[in-house]
């Protein structure tokens, strides 16, 4: 961060970690207590989702009583108030519902080129948000697409993605 460097330099020159706001010319104290956030997110109860993805399969949970399919998978059925969900494999094909191209990326995604995010309605009825591989100008809403599982180019972990169905 630019102002962080200025702040550190000014400790020597001015006696405090300060900088001047470029637009207003006003004096700012540069906070030295930088925070890094990275969470531990529990996936214990949906572990089959990840185990199957590693094997190339896309699975999710279905309530054996009411039959509702949940995606993202969830441990509990709030309709029937039960927690004994069954795991089912999802069909891979569906229809493109909407898409966008993210040009201005969060800093944690800076190493990726602008990416296409799309939402697909699978033939099973559930909808999935994921990156779409391919040229966004060559796809349109209503196109047939399929889900593929691949390792992420930069991070190296498995992830599902949307690809247009040829023809």
């Amino acid at each position: 961060m630019e102002y962080r460097k200025a702040g550190e330099k000014n400790i020597k020159e001015y006696g405090f970690p300060v900088t001047i706001d470029e637009k207003l010319g006003t004096l700012q104290w540069v906070d030295l207590r930088e925070l890094t956030l990275s969470y531990l997110i529990c996936i214990e109860n949906i572990a089959p989702f990840f185990e199957n993805m590693r094997e190339g399969k896309l699975v999710t949970t279905r309530c054996p009583e009411c039959g509702e399919i949940f995606f993202p998978p969830q441990k509990d059925c709030p309709n029937c108030m039960i927690s004994e969900m069954e795991w089912i494999e999802l069909g891979r094909e569906g229809t493109l519902e909407t898409l966008t191209v993210v040009f201005v990326r969060p800093p944690t995604f800076a190493r990726y080129d602008p990416y296409v995010v799309a939402i697909v309605r699978l033939d099973d009825g559930v909808k999935i948000t994921a990156w779409l591989r391919g040229d966004p100008e060559k796809v349109k809403i209503g196109d047939r697409v399929r889900i593929e599982i691949k390792r992420r180019e930069k991070e190296g972990h498995y992830m599902y993605e949307i690809v247009p169905v040829e023809g």
């Binding site: 993202p72 993210v102 201005v104 990326r105 995604f109 990416y115 948000t129 994921a130 990156w131």
Partner: peptide
């Protein structure tokens, strides 16, 4: 988790 972590939505 399902939108930001892996798909970088803004």
């Amino acid at each position: 988790f399902w939108e930001f972590e892996n798909f970088g939505l803004t």
